[in-house]
C-alpha cells in the first residue's frame, strides 16, 4: 500500500437540476487492487462510473489518474489515458462481427492513417495485420475465437457479457471498470466469470473496480468494498467489515439481506 494510488477521487459530486446524484465521493485505488462498489438501487453507482469515464463532468471535486487531473475530459480521451469500462446494459456494436468489436477497441493503438488505408499503402496492411493478430489472441482468452465472424448480436447473453469485457481490455486499460458483469447470469456462469476476472487481472496487470448486485461475487473476490447510498459513501473496508457495518445493514434492509443473497 505504499505505492502511489492509480486513481484518486476526492470529494467528487454532481448535480442534476438541483438533485445531488453523487456527493462528496472519495476513493483511492492502488495498482493491482480489485475493489467492489455496492449499494442499493439508485444509490449512484453507475453515476460514479459515468463520472470516472468522462460521460458526466463532476460539478465539484477532483479525479486524478496517475497524478493527472482527468475531470472534464471527453470519454474517448479518458479511455486513452487508461480507464476502460463495460456497461450495465450491454452496449456492443451489434451489427459488427465479434472480431470487429474487439478491433474497434484496438483503434487508438494502431497508427496507420486514413490516407494509407484509402490507397492501401504498406502501413495499412502492417497495422491491420497487427490488430487482427492481437484481437484473435484476446478472443482466445475469452473463448470467443471460434465465433469471431458471428455478429455480436447473435451471441448468447453470457457470450455478449464476455465480449464486452474483452472489448474493454482491448482498449488497453490500466484500470478496468466493470458495471454489473454478472447481471443475468446463472450461478455456474457467475463462477466462471469470477475465475475469468481473477485471471485477466493477473494476466494484464489490471486494477479493477466492480459494481455488482451479486453479493456472493463481490464478497468472494474483492479485497475492499465501498458502499454507496443516496449518492453518499456510507462505508468502506474489507468484505467482513462492510458486511457487519450498521449503516450498510440499514441501507440494505427492506431490499435484501446481504448474506443470504445469491
Amino acid at each position: 500500500m505504499e505505492d502511489k494510488p492509480i486513481l484518486h477521487v476526492s470529494q467528487v459530486g454532481i448535480n442534476f437540476g438541483g438533485l445531488k446524484a453523487v456527493d462528496g465521493f472519495n476513493l483511492k485505488l492502488y495498482p493491482g487492487e480489485l475493489i467492489g462498489l455496492i449499494g442499493p438501487n439508485g444509490a449512484g453507482k453507475t453515476t460514479v462510473f459515468n463520472l470516472l469515464t468522462g460521460v458526466y463532468t463532476p460539478t465539484e471535486g477532483e479525479i486524478m489518474l496517475n497524478g493527472e487531473r482527468i475531470n472534464g475530459l471527453a470519454p474517448f480521451k479518458v479511455t486513452r489515458k487508461g480507464i476502460s469500462r463495460t456497461f450495465q446494459n450491454v452496449r456492443l456494436f451489434n451489427e459488427q462481427s465479434v472480431l470487429d468489436n474487439v478491433k474497434v477497441a484496438y483503434h487508438s493503438l494502431a497508427r496507420h492513417s486514413i490516407i494509407s488505408s484509402i490507397f492501401r499503402l504498406r502501413n495499412h496492411f502492417i497495422g491491420e495485420q497487427e490488430m487482427e493478430a492481437k484481437a484473435i489472441d484476446l478472443l482466445k482468452i475469452f473463448q470467443l475465437d471460434k465465433v469471431k465472424d458471428e455478429k455480436a448480436k447473435n451471441l448468447p447473453y453470457g457470450g455478449q457479457r464476455r465480449l464486452e469485457i474483452a472489448r474493454a481490455l482491448a482498449a488497453g486499460p490500466e484500470l478496468l471498470l466493470l458495471d454489473e458483469p454478472a447481471a443475468g447470469m446463472n450461478p455456474q456462469e457467475t463462477n466462471d466469470l469470477m475465475e475469468l476476472i481473477s485471471f485477466i487481472r493477473e494476466q494484464f496487470n489490471l486494477t479493477i473496480l466492480l459494481i455488482e448486485h451479486d453479493m456472493k461475487l463481490v464478497m468472494g473476490i474483492c479485497e475492499r468494498i465501498s458502499v454507496l447510498d443516496h449518492g453518499l459513501l456510507i462505508a468502506e473496508g474489507t468484505p467482513d467489515e462492510v458486511r457487519n457495518h450498521p449503516k450498510v445493514i440499514e441501507a440494505y434492509l427492506g431490499e435484501e439481506v446481504i448474506s443470504n443473497h445469491a
Partner: peptide, 23 residues
C-alpha cells in the same frame, strides 16, 4: 479499415464507441 470500423461503431452505439477511445 480501422477508420471504417470506427465509423460503423459510431452507428451501432455512439456511447460505447466513445468509451472505447474512438474520437
Amino acid at each position: 479499415s480501422r477508420h471504417g470500423r470506427a465509423c460503423i461503431s459510431i452507428r451501432e452505439n455512439e456511447i460505447a464507441a466513445d468509451a472505447m477511445g474512438i474520437n
